[in-house]
Nucleic acid binder design. Structure first.
Lengths: 205, 205
DNA sequence: GTCTATAATCAGATAGAC
DNA sequence: GTCTATCTGATTATAGAC
């Protein structure tokens, strides 16, 4: 009976986890597509294929839905950082990460949070999981930035925090969608262009 | 009697114009502060100090309110472009314009439109005034960009349209508010930093 | 044109049966 | 946990008096 019970509970929990994963993936896509304010809980429920009331059994509010999606993004970022060879050049790792985030954005997988919204910000700041993820990612990137500046690869005149913000901002750069809408370039060309303007600047060299 | 009539009508129209200007300024600030979705018509009315129903006598919808604010921004941009010395270096003029737009953003005077919202986008695209303003500004900037590329000041490898988008994107760059929130730098330092990352890039030279 | 009052709608959240 | 049905509040928009 013990084993039976354990297996049953584990299976149930697996189902629960799978359902919540499906919810978070749907939220992720909707956030990427329309942003937090324009996304409705009805849409999320319809997209997952369950009733709205069921959603609220998993997540207590719309803010918590968005927060869960952001926590997942942070987890994905940490996973990606862990795949990078530890002995690679910090600048190369930074470039790889930025390109990866922009690829996510182009693929409609990067949730975009209107940076002004207050209720969502409050939920995010209160989320231990989100803040931990953000801080860990920032620590890793920050260390790479400082090394890259010390070795003369990144302009040391720019405060490291400004470099970090500039890299984060690529994840929500409207230039990506503008160029994509233009239809004149494929995704790789767009990535090359924005990578170039980000690291080399607009000026001729 | 004719003169009296003319003066009276003109005065009325002046009052009307002044009222609408006040409305548009309030909308401008609220759009800059919270964005289109989070801004409510009640807030606009309260901010102007008139009843909500009166607002709707001037503008038929919330979208038209936002559109009027955007038209005003475009007009201000055109006015600013006209103040630049015609014989100055195109690159210098571009830099001056970008700095001006970022200054507006730092001052809470740059309305931020969630680029995804559909109902607002439809209204903007249907607005002759807005589209005209946008096209004229883009034409002027585009000509400067091409000249700057031809004279070797701006990287000619980058399509002019990508340069234009990159410059436009500075007007809603979240790096500005992040650095401002950090409190470590004053406005001029922030402008210098973002100008540098925009034109010189992150790489050391 | 401006106001008060109200309609109409939509979206976040909940009740309660199963 | 999932559902249907409903509540509640906020928000866009309008009616109608002055």
């Amino acid at each position: 009976m013990k084993t039976g019970n354990v297996v049953k509970v584990s299976f149930k929990e697996q189902m629960l986890q799978a359902r919540e994963d499906a919810i978070i993936r749907a939220v992720n896509h909707l956030l990427a597509e329309k942003g937090f304010e324009a996304m409705t809980v009805d849409e999320v429920a319809a997209s997952v294929g369950i009733a709205k009331a069921s959603l609220y059994k998993h997540f207590p509010s719309k803010e918590d839905l968005a927060c869960a999606a952001m926590v997942r993004v942070m987890q994905r970022a940490q996973d990606f950082l862990a795949t990078l060879p530890p002995d690679a050049e910090p600048l190369d790792k930074l470039r790889t990460v930025v390109r990866w985030t922009m690829q996510l954005k182009l693929d409609g997988e990067m949730p975009s949070l209107p940076s002004q919204n207050s209720s969502l910000r409050a939920t995010l700041m209160a989320s231990k999981d989100y803040m931990n993820g953000l801080l860990e990612v920032s620590d890793i990137l920050g260390a790479w930035i400082e090394t890259a500046q010390a070795t003369g690869r990144i302009n040391a005149q720019i405060p490291a925090i400004a470099v970090l913000y500039t890299l984060y901002a690529r994840a929500c750069d409207p230039v990506l969608e503008f160029l994509k809408m233009g239809g004149q370039h494929d995704n790789d060309q767009i990535l090359d262009l924005v990578m170039s303007t980000c690291f080399d600047g607009l000026n001729a060299r």
